[in-house]
Write a protein that binds this DNA or RNA. Structure first.
Lengths: 124, 124
DNA sequence: TATACCAGTATCCTATAGGATACCATTAAT
DNA sequence: ATTAATGGTATCCTATAGGATACTGGTATA
């Protein structure tokens, strides 16, 4: 490699690795099997109770749902509201900040859909 | 709830849960800490050797890199080419199918960047 | 001749993700 | 009176993600 080439390459490398760091930051927030499904459900439903959310997300256990919701709340993506009824009503909803994940959600949904179609094709 | 309302709700639920399934399909492919960083690096670099890729992705161990690359290869997102030089040269590159993940990659990158900025703001 | 690069593999280890199951108090419906 | 729904918590368990460290055989470089 020539000197000039090497300098170019190193610039590319730095540029790339800083982008990767941003991706890793995002992934940390959305880590695990259930964060995106939960966010997706809440975006779609606007708001939901615990059990309803559990049914919607699929086969998540209450333990996991509870844990994931706490993490999402900590990161200000989800809001938990307790209404003083009897028995208490709890409402989970997506925050404005949570809504900023819509691009990710949609691109995941879109890719997943196409991927499923592709798998079907490949099996023929 | 009135009958009409219930019917509406059930439609919403079905609609939503099928979307969530697509998201879960996608997540299965990209599971773990390293798939997106690796794909991101390969999109950016076009092609790369093993060690170069390792440096680029960050602090991934060779064991994990090797494992993740195999999974990505199995899912046709990454291609491994061995050149018959001595010692052998191995080139990892992104496939055309791999490039279909660009929307996801970009939205993750974008969100991660903004999120990092937000965290900085919040700390002030 | 010692050191360093390449592309990984092998071995060992631990934390935790995540499932299964049971349970709680409260209230409304049958 | 019993069943079911609500919003979870408690306990137990296992698989595996993923880190740390060492190593290999071949080559080229200092």
């Amino acid at each position: 490699m020539e000197k000039q080439e090497i300098v170019e390459k190193q610039k590319t490398m730095k540029d790339c690795s800083s982008k990767i760091l941003a991706v890793r930051d995002a992934l940390e927030i959305f880590s695990g099997k259930w964060k995106f499904p939960i966010i997706g459900a809440l975006i779609h439903l606007q708001e939901s109770g615990f059990k309803e959310l559990q049914r919607m997300v699929g086969d998540i256990t209450p333990k996991m749902l509870s844990k994931e919701l706490k993490e999402l709340e900590m990161n200000h993506l989800v809001k938990r509201t307790v209404l003083d009824t009897r028995p208490v009503t709890v409402i989970y909803s997506i925050t404005e900040y949570g809504k900023t994940t819509q691009n990710i959600m949609y691109s995941l949904y879109e890719w997943g859909t196409k991927h499923r179609e592709k798998i079907k094709e490949d099996m023929k």
